[in-house]
Design a protein around this nucleic acid. Structure first.
Ligand code: ZN
Ligand code: ZN
Ligand code: ZN
Ligand code: ZN
Lengths: 144, 144
DNA sequence: GTTAGTCATGGTACTTAGTATCATTAATAT
DNA sequence: ATATTAATGATACTAAGTACCATGACTAAC
């Protein structure tokens, strides 16, 4: 399993490279994302940026999603969580206590998925895996 | 990988065993579920039962979910899909063309997940896996 | 079978996540 | 500096689901 240090792209630069304008709203949203990093909801961002319209929050998240710089996780309950993302294929851990989201890659999973596709009826074209965990921080807090 | 024939419990009996009443609305909802089997949305059921209140549809689905006789899948887009379920731990296939939902079990996955939990920071307490496929029916249709 | 108690229902209003519309404003290119 | 066009915020809307409540349907006791 790899959990290497992520070198994240300059998100605003990526936006501009694709022809999108570097606006105040986008900059402030991206700034918050880079601050939070993982496991935030659209609503949380809106709360921290009352001057930015709700529609713009969602528009921007959608844009970043399309560009692959963030992920959206549809969890079993609660609103979807967004998190900054490395670009390559990966999966997620979600702490069931604090809601923090992590990324991980595991060659073993990908190998197994490739194997499975021979045994599943139909053509497997993708997969999605979430691990539910209690993170180290939350485990510690409980034993104090 | 196992994909064994499912022997499904009598859902109404399960409800009654838990002290819930056998009502007209519940019977008609359960009847439709048993008919459809997999990959239906709450809205679809509502459409087929105009005489049953929307709230009751959701209440009943929630109840069946708690009892473990159906699953809800939060897909990357579109409304959640429900499907009848065997009771044991399993995972899902979703056809990206027709939306049909299937269940499967694979000891290899469970073994791998157990292994991963040694390598992931934090305590792994559960997982969720979805395979996105084009099912045999949909593949055939495309080559015609 | 009737009755009493309670559970469940349907209707309505509300919430939450997200989208459509649109007049106004801000970013870019020249 | 100006013109062009993209982006914005406000508002209204949709879709999935929940809260509330007076009415009606089940069930159990008799
Ligand atoms: Zn991710
Ligand atoms: Zn945690
Ligand atoms: Zn299932
Ligand atoms: Zn299909």
């Amino acid at each position: 399993m790899t959990n290497e240090q992520v070198v994240r792209p300059n998100i605003m630069a990526v936006l501009e490279d694709r022809g999108y304008r570097s606006t105040n709203s986008r900059r402030s949203i991206v700034h918050i994302l880079e601050d939070k990093g993982s496991g935030f909801t659209a609503e949380e961002i809106g709360r921290e940026l009352p001057s930015v319209g709700r529609a713009t929050i969602f528009r921007t998240l959608k844009l970043l999603l399309e560009m692959g710089v963030i992920c959206r996780l549809n969890l079993p309950d609660g609103p979807p969580k967004y998190s900054l993302s490395r670009v390559e294929h990966h999966h997620h851990t979600v702490c069931v206590v604090c809601g923090n989201v992590g990324e991980f890659r595991a060659a073993t999973i990908e190998r197994l998925m490739r194997t499975l596709s021979n045994e599943i009826p139909g053509d497997v074209i993708g997969h999605r895996i979430e691990l539910y965990i209690t993170c180290d921080l939350c485990s510690k807090e409980n034993t104090n």
